[in-house]
């Protein structure tokens, strides 16, 4: 019970704040509640399959295989795979972080993990189709063409900025998750 309270303390505080706001501004609290439930529905729809696939990936795909395809020395193959996996993804960006943790555990090269995060954030194929239909192909494809090199450059700069020691600590922490 106590551990649950500690783990959910931030949530409890925010919930209390919304609860108090319902006294002073009921329409505000009502709107927050209905929007939260709409989001919750969306989350419960997309997030569970992602975590199930993660668990399966973690227990079935051996580290050596992941290292061969996406680890140090995987070269262009690793970059392309990181892009493809990230772009095929579904769900909000926060769904990408647990996947990144499993990638760390499996010895995926740090730069490729950053490319994967970049692809998940902005070059998702289902979203691209949706973007084309609402904002037009010129807008969506221009953005995609700028984003692809942008993601690679950002991933490169980030892996240069972060020390090897910091990366090692991150990988060790992922091992415990």
């Amino acid at each position: 019970m106590k551990t649950i309270v500690i783990r959910y303390r931030v949530l409890i505080i925010v919930l209390l704040a919304v609860g108090i706001s319902s006294i002073f501004d009921p329409p505000f609290a009502r709107s927050v509640t209905s929007l939260t439930f709409a989001q919750l529905k969306e989350m419960l729809l997309v997030i569970p399959p992602i975590f199930i696939l993660l668990g399966l990936l973690d227990s079935w795909v051996p580290k050596e295989v992941m290292v061969r395809y996406m680890g140090e020395g995987s070269g262009v193959k690793g970059v392309v795979l990181a892009f493809l996996i990230g772009s095929a993804a579904a769900g909000p960006l926060y769904g990408a972080f647990p996947v990144a943790a499993v990638f760390m555990k499996k010895g995926v090269k740090f730069r490729n993990i950053l490319i994967f995060i970049g692809a998940w954030s902005t070059t998702k194929i289902p979203m691209l189709l949706f973007e084309i239909s609402s904002l037009g192909a010129r807008f969506a494809l221009t953005r995609l063409l700028v984003d692809i090199p942008g993601i690679i450059i950002i991933a490169h700069l980030l892996s240069l900025l972060i020390s090897k020691e910091d990366v090692r600590i991150l990988y060790e922490r992922a091992e415990l998750k």
Binding site: V32, L35, L56, D58, W60, F97, P98
Partner: peptide, 28 residues
Amino acid sequence: ALQKSWNAFSAILPQFLVVILLVGVMLT
């Protein structure tokens, strides 16, 4: 594997819920 899935999910669930609630506030 499913146990691993559940552990990873329940570890991050509190933060996910906070994000969702804050999004509700923000969209309002």
